[in-house]
Write a protein that binds this DNA or RNA. Structure first.
Lengths: 236, 236
DNA sequence: CCCTTTTTAAATCCACTGGTCTAGACCCAT
DNA sequence: ATGGGTCTAGACCAGTGGATTTAAAAAGGG
């Protein structure tokens, strides 16, 4: 258990930025002001990916605003490699949508180019230490966006309007099976009732949800917060 | 434009905590150490809701761990009132799931009872100023949980595995209509082709997606990132 | 205990769905 | 030009889905 050594080892960093001026500046900053080791730099995302595969750094500082392959896609690819490489997104803008998407695909930090150099170093230190770092101004922006995206979708179901609430328990069970793509026959077997009974329930469900067929019923259920929100997600 | 006055006005606060000892302590802290005005306190969520409707405070400090009606539900109700009341969640535990759910339903801050009193005051100040405040230790926890929930669901689609990528353009159009609950006849009309052609396409889709009926096809499409990710969300 | 709601079930009937085979027209690339 | 993939479309058939009516047993609340 030689834990001390692990922490003393200088974390290796790769910088990616299509602006060479800025790249050099950051490189110098890191080399002078910190203990980190800049093992490589790249001015395009595709080159960066190869370098990352080769050097296996602990940290990647990735500019988001780049031509051709953009930084977000690159971060997603790095995450997919699953090498435990921790990426920090870097841009000039505090666009909440960008921040949200970066954090969603797995960036471990997000900082602005306009931020003080000390904060950049601090961010790298935090991320290298295994934490996720977002400056409070950006995290505030993130949360506003995060909450808004849920208000739009969650608050529209006002309980009385949600027709799902009028279903009986048995009807819910049947609908649950329908949302798994089970046929009438299958539902009958799983619930130990006859197929005609299933049809009765399904018909009642259609009337209560004001739809005409199972597909619409399933869509209504999934869109209005049914129990069965298994693998549902938001687009990148 | 008498902006100055707005900012000088003491923000009114309501405290909610089933532990009376803690409630009194926090009340005293706020009254002594800050400029905020504790207009009321409550030891249960249901009483709190009535008080909030009556006093219309700017800030509500809500304990999450309470018997009967829990704090999260109470926060959701307050948000539903849409009175611009900003709530701060308060608990003894830094459980990431709790933090995630609190932020999701609209809490503007989240702090631990074990945190220094100065941090509590600071949180109220930030939230009163319109910001969202999460201490960095908690925001780190939040993001880990946030990213994990997306890894489980997003990374499983590995492009080659995603059967949706094998569909032709026309088949995608047909599937898109199926995910809206349109019948064969409807699809035929919308795409200006015969119903039999629609059947052919649908059959090809079933084979490519390895399913047996439209419901399963729709579910596959929705769960594997089809264009059509309209109103999809995560459970509270 | 009665009334209501829920759950169960049957019969009938028709429309819609889905499987299979066949085949022409079109586009694109080798 | 020949071959592969796509889009179109027909025929035929089996099965499922869905509407409607009727009704009885079970559960639950006042």
């Amino acid at each position: 258990m030689r834990r001390g050594l692990e922490f003393k080892k200088k974390a290796r960093v790769i910088l990616v930025d299509d602006n060479y001026e800025h790249l050099s500046g950051v490189r110098e900053l890191i080399e002078v002001e910190s203990d980190f080791d800049v093992v490589a730099t790249a001015t395009s995302a595709s080159v960066a990916i190869s370098l990352i595969k080769k050097y296996r750094p602990e940290i990647v500082l990735m500019d988001i605003n780049m031509p051709e392959k953009d930084g977000l896609t690159a971060i997603a690819e790095i995450e997919k490699l699953d090498l435990g490489i921790r990426t920090i997104a870097l841009t000039g803008y505090d666009d909440p949508d960008l921040i949200f998407r970066a954090m969603k695909i797995g960036a471990k930090g997000y900082i602005l180019k306009t931020m003080a150099s000390a904060q950049l170093i601090y961010a790298i230190e935090e991320v290298a230490a295994g934490k996720i770092y977002l400056p409070s101004t950006l995290s505030s922006r993130f949360f506003e966006y995060f909450q808004k995206s849920f208000r739009d979708e969650t608050q529209t179901i006002s309980d009385e309007e949600n027709l799902l609430n009028y279903l009986t328990q048995r009807e819910e069970e049947v609908l649950d099976l329908l949302t798994q793509g089970v046929t009438y026959k299958g539902v009958a077997q799983k619930l130990f009732i006859s197929e005609t009974t299933v049809k009765t329930h399904v018909n009642n469900i259609f009337q209560k949800l004001q739809v005409n067929d199972r597909t619409q019923a399933v869509l209504y259920a999934l869109n209005n917060g049914f129990l069965n929100r298994r693998k549902v997600k938001i687009a990148i």
